[in-house]
């Protein structure tokens, strides 16, 4: 764990000492506040959470793109690979560093909670579960981004592929209605209808954003928690395997 902590410390320093992180945060809060504050009518964080979740999809690839791509491009990966740090520790350290920055962004969105707390009588239950959901969603996006970063030495390519994959995991839900329509048209064949219905369930379960919405309503569902935890661990694991394969 100590090795993972050193990697985490090094990456956090590098992320927070980079002007890019501050520019990303400044743009993030300028845009989100512009869209939120003028139209805020209800003492609820639901609108803010929805917007922050959507914006995380766009900014997480920028936060994760450097993780490994930069090491590959600058050649420092060889140093890392030959050091006594395991691939798992390396991935965990880099993932935690990205999460520290994502956590800082999420914490700064506390300004909206402060506003609704001062000028209204909000229900704090959904506000707290919403933050839990944002952390899990950003964790899933971070693990996906770290994985994409391990595939290439080009940072833009890492960001674009991470964004593309995240987008695919969001729009996949839209395909569900097409599959439902298909299932409805299979009135003659029970087997075909069953296959289409099973596919529809898989598509429903796959949507990375669909598992988030219950959190912002104030509901914690074990299904969603397991989805995000399994998602994060899976992508961190395959990233570690990817690094292992490069060692040999």
């Amino acid at each position: 764990m100590r090795n993972a902590y050193y990697i985490f410390k090094k990456d956090v320093k590098s992320l927070f000492m980079s002007p890019l992180a501050y520019v990303v945060m400044a743009v993030f809060f300028c845009v989100s506040s512009f869209l939120l504050v003028a139209g805020m009518e209800e003492a609820s964080m639901r609108g803010a959470f929805g917007l922050i979740a959507t914006m995380l999809i766009f900014i997480m690839p920028f936060l994760t793109m450097r993780s490994f791509a930069e090491e590959f491009a600058s050649g420092t990966d060889e140093l890392l690979m030959t050091s006594p740090v395991t691939s798992g520790q390396l991935v965990a350290g880099k993932f935690m560093a990205v999460m520290a920055l994502a956590g800082a962004i999420i914490a700064l969105s506390g300004q909206y909670a402060l506003i609704i707390g001062i000028y209204g009588d909000p229900d704090w239950g959904p506000a707290l579960t919403g933050y839990a959901g944002l952390l899990l969603l950003s964790g899933a996006l971070a693990s996906l981004g770290v994985y994409c970063s391990s595939l290439t030495r080009s940072q833009p390519a890492a960001a674009v592929s991470a964004f593309g994959l995240a987008l695919l995991l969001i729009v996949i839900r839209a395909a569900q209605s097409a599959v439902d329509a298909l299932a409805a048209s299979f009135t003659g064949s029970a087997a075909a209808e069953a296959v289409a219905k099973a596919l529809s369930s898989v598509l429903e379960a796959a949507g990375v954003l669909d598992h988030y919405f219950d959190f912002e309503k104030g509901v914690i569902d074990s299904t969603h928690v397991v989805y995000y935890v399994a998602f994060i661990l899976l992508f961190l694991f395959i990233t570690a395997r990817r690094l292992d394969s490069k060692r040999f």
Partner: peptide, 27 residues
Amino acid sequence: AVGIAFMAYYVAARNPVRKDFSEMGLN
């Protein structure tokens, strides 16, 4: 790993535990 992740999700989806934290139990 992919298989284990899918299995974990499948089991969780079959046995969901839900807790509503909203003040009035709106959900």
